[in-house]
Amino acid sequence: MTSTIKTIALAASVAVAGAAASAATLTSGGALNIGDDASIATNIAPTSSSVGYTFTALEDMRVNDFISVSATGNQSGASIAQLTFGYTGASINDITGATLDSTIILPGSTTAFGGGTLPGFILRTGESFTFEFQNGSASTVAATMNFTTAAVPLPAGGLLLLTALAGAGAVARRKKKAQKA
């Protein structure tokens, strides 16, 4: 029985290790693996300019709930107040036209900083989404976007593990009973 439990434990650890094996930080759009982070910084030209980045999932994954966006501009906050952002994709609820949640203007300066967030979502293998910034102001805005990815929780995996452990226990009991007889 001990060898059976060791075998099951080894199989579970190999499965978990495979998901955590590759992690990269993307600085532009591209292919996403579980564990990858995206950290994109860009300058968006004035007057209705937009910049977009497309990401494609190489495996089922979750884009985590905290997609952070920050921006720096001048004009005492007027430039970043006109920055909008969002994401679109075939299988997700599109969010477009989001604005920064908060803005801080440096005292005695025209420089302002702002930040905002977007909710995460699940991507299936081969699905893509595009994150886009749009600048409606008369000056350039510097913006960043960050998110992380993780494995999609598999509730059935826990049930499968419990079933395997129960089966191993039943086999061990049957062997023990057969040895006594």
Results as ranks from 00 to 15, higher is better:
A143D: 00
D101K: 09
S68G: 09
I95G: 05
D101A: 15
L83H: 01
T2Y: 11
S22N: 13
A164S: 15
T99F: 02
I122W: 02
I34T: 07
K176V: 09
V14C: 09
L160G: 10
A90P: 05
R124C: 02
A71G: 03
T111E: 03
G167T: 13
G86P: 01
K6P: 06
T56S: 07
G114H: 03
V14N: 13
S22I: 15
A181P: 05
A38F: 05
G136R: 04
R62E: 03
S3V: 15
A23W: 10
F131A: 03
A178T: 12
A178S: 14
G116F: 01
L118Q: 03
A78G: 06
G97V: 12
V16N: 12
R124L: 10
I80N: 01
P153N: 15
G115T: 12
T130M: 03
F55E: 00
A138N: 12
G158W: 02
G89Y: 09
Q179P: 06
A90S: 15
A11V: 14
G52Q: 07
A151T: 12
A71H: 02
T117H: 07
L118F: 04
S91I: 10
A112M: 05
T148A: 08
F147S: 04
T144C: 02
A38D: 05
D94P: 07
L154G: 13
K177N: 10
T27Q: 09
G108L: 09
Y53L: 00
A164V: 15
A23E: 08
A112I: 04
K177M: 11
V152N: 06
K6C: 11
T117Q: 12
Y87Q: 04
A170Q: 12
A21N: 11
A98I: 07
S13G: 10
N43I: 09
A168F: 01
Q179F: 12
A11G: 11
F55A: 00
I95L: 10
L160E: 12
R173G: 13
K177Q: 14
L100W: 04
T88C: 08
G158Q: 10
Y87P: 00
A78E: 08
N74V: 13
T148D: 05
V51W: 00
R173K: 13
T111C: 07
T88M: 10
A45R: 05
T111Y: 07
L83D: 02
V141D: 05
T56I: 13
F85A: 00
L32R: 01
A41W: 01
L58Q: 10
E127Q: 11
L162F: 08
T4R: 14
A11K: 14
S102R: 09
G29D: 02
K176D: 13
L162D: 15
A90D: 13
F133L: 06
Q82H: 04
T144G: 00
F133T: 04
Q75E: 09
T2N: 14
I95Y: 05
T96W: 02
E127C: 01
G169M: 14
D60P: 04
F121R: 10
T148V: 10
